[in-house]
Design a protein around this nucleic acid. Structure first.
Lengths: 334, 334
DNA sequence: ACTCGTGACGACAACGATGACGCAGGATGG
DNA sequence: CCATCCTGCGTCATCGTTGTCGTCACGAGT
């Protein structure tokens, strides 16, 4: 910038004025400065600028999601990006992969970068470590999972209601032996979905069969193996609720391998792009990622605009999309 | 930092030493400083730090992809993130949506942020505007599309070869009336794929039928409509090469609507998660996003480590994954 | 002619941090 | 006992930019 000032024959402050489009520079000077900028390939240094400025917005928002490669996180990221672009915010995205250490590391990196806000799909279970950041005025919005030990905004989906909806739908279809497959015990959404499943069974007065509730399933392969084992039971399930994206895939794959794809009903949690083209077309519980992302962005932007008030906890209702796999009737025993 | 120094009874420089883990601070002083840091909730300011430092690495890499919500971009982002995490780099991700203006805007933002490097899946067709950045030492790696008017690293897929492979596979299956659907005329990968299709036809001495080559298809719906129109031809195609992810989806949907899903062969470009569960299972040309991402990261890290030398142009070969949809034989005429 | 306002611009300090250097005091070697 | 080195820490300038305030010229109003 000094060089530009020298070449244009003005002071650095004037260059600053021109670069920032501030008033107080005549057209002639402006032209000279812009010419010099061009000739010297000068680039404004945003870091130094935010350092000096009073309000000091870095223009960065951190998006700490579970896995940027899966369609849920990716869709959410995209929705966030769209809503944050207009106000001039950039998104620094990271995958946490359920690793608490990574979460803490990336959060502290973002704090050091003076991010304007954080969107967090936490891998940790306790969030007290964020209290000091919140007190310092950092807006944090939790997504998909609620904060614990920390009072701050969140946008979640009614997992309990969603799983209940799925299970009740199968019961209404005549099923009594309904299995459920979920992720790690310690993941909150998985716990809620299990609870929803049990609540639906209880409401319909169907006994809970422990052997039909399988958890700690972390991959497609694990899901497929679990399903294969379930089918080998003396009294196998006639329907399955798949607690998550990849579990649904593994489930369908196992059913297909067993030739049971038209015999056992399936309802998956989480919709995905080609679910209607699978055979049979998949009935799913859909969480609207667009809407989730838009809500998160709305809350974050409000906070950035100085909105005070108590934390908001938005809970969105998932919907049941019937496509066929969930409407397969139970096989008549014997 | 001043406050911390005051509370700990030392100079700011000493605080700096402790915070950065530099030698030259006794254990006693270190403890006092860390205590003060804790009490005052002091956070290191990375912006100020990189401003002052000589080497001035911001630790940010920009990833400008087409659409973070689609599985190709998302997978690529994930692969990049994984490779860049270890050397301590964060990824600032953005979707370009084929909009040249957006590309320029985001690039200039990243330059102003002093990003350490750029990964670019360009929406623009000419890249001279990056010459000055390159000269200033900014590493830029193009991905999926080659640079034009600029000599810099790139990692691409052999689109011509991939499309040729798909087409030849259908020809080998006995097809003669093979349609191809591609994206916008101006998108380079689409152009290459069309060329590969025509090359395969020419090589097998099959006449090119203009009515079977449809382009400027931008959505699932457009693809579906195009396919429906193709089926209504007097001499409809017996096989279709779908030039892209969403085109494949639209194609399958239209075939299904027409009840022709077992009559017309389909080979799609780009694999996706549940392609084997679709009915019929989809034969596709797969681009290995993991590998692409890893190559991009490798080149970028080399450049960051000061590797000189001429630009590298890595071209990866896509592979044909046979699953069924591409192996449907042609319907016997009449 | 004098004041006064206004617009264009510059001088200077400061944002938060670190590099270069300096200085005191104790350990070391001859 | 002195020269020398090392350790531990402080002082100062500086990174690139902008907020604050001052200066100067010029035109208008009386």
């Amino acid at each position: 910038m000094k060089d530009v000032a020298l070449l244009a024959g003005v002071s650095v402050k004037t260059v600053s004025r021109v670069v920032n489009g501030e008033p107080g520079a005549s057209t002639a000077v402006r032209q000279r400065v812009l010419g010099a900028v061009e000739r010297l390939d000068y680039r404004h240094n945003l870091g130094a600028s935010t350092l000096r400025r009073k309000d000091a917005r870095s223009g960065i928002v951190g998006a700490l999601l579970q896995d940027l490669g899966n369609s849920f996180s990716a869709g959410l990221l995209r929705a966030l990006e769209d809503a944050l672009r207009e106000p001039g915010l950039s998104v620094l995205a990271a995958s946490l992969d359920e690793e608490p250490e990574r979460e803490r590391g990336i959060v502290s990196d973002l704090v050091a970068r003076r991010a304007d806000g954080l969107v967090l799909m936490p891998a940790t279970h306790r969030h007290e470590y964020l209290i000091s950041e919140r007190r310092a005025g950092l807006p944090v919005v939790f997504v998909d999972r609620r904060p614990h030990g920390l009072d701050c905004d969140s946008v979640t989906v009614d997992n309990h209601g969603g799983a209940k909806l799925a299970t009740a739908h199968l019961v209404a279809g005549g099923h009594r032996r309904i299995a459920m497959l979920t992720d790690l015990e310690e993941i909150e959404t998985a716990v809620e979905r299990r609870a929803g499943y049990r609540a639906a069974l209880a409401e319909k007065e169907i006994g809970f069969a422990p052997e039909l509730l399988v958890h700690d399933i972390r991959s497609e392969m694990a899901a497929a193996q679990a399903v294969t084992a379930l089918l080998d039971l003396a009294d196998p399930p006639t329907a399955i609720v798949a607690g998550r994206n990849i579990i649904t895939v593994g489930t369908v794959r196992a059913l297909r391998a067993a030739g049971a794809v038209r015999e056992v009903a399936v309802v998956g949690f989480d919709d995905f792009p080609m679910a209607d083209l699978v055979e049979p077309p998949l009935t799913v519980i859909r969480q609207d990622v667009q809407q989730i992302g838009a809500e998160v962005a709305r809350i974050l932007l409000d906070r950035l605009n100085g909105a005070g008030g108590p934390p908001q906890h938005v809970v969105l209702e998932p919907t049941l999309i019937q496509r066929g796999s969930g409407e397969i009737p139970p096989r008549r025993p014997g």
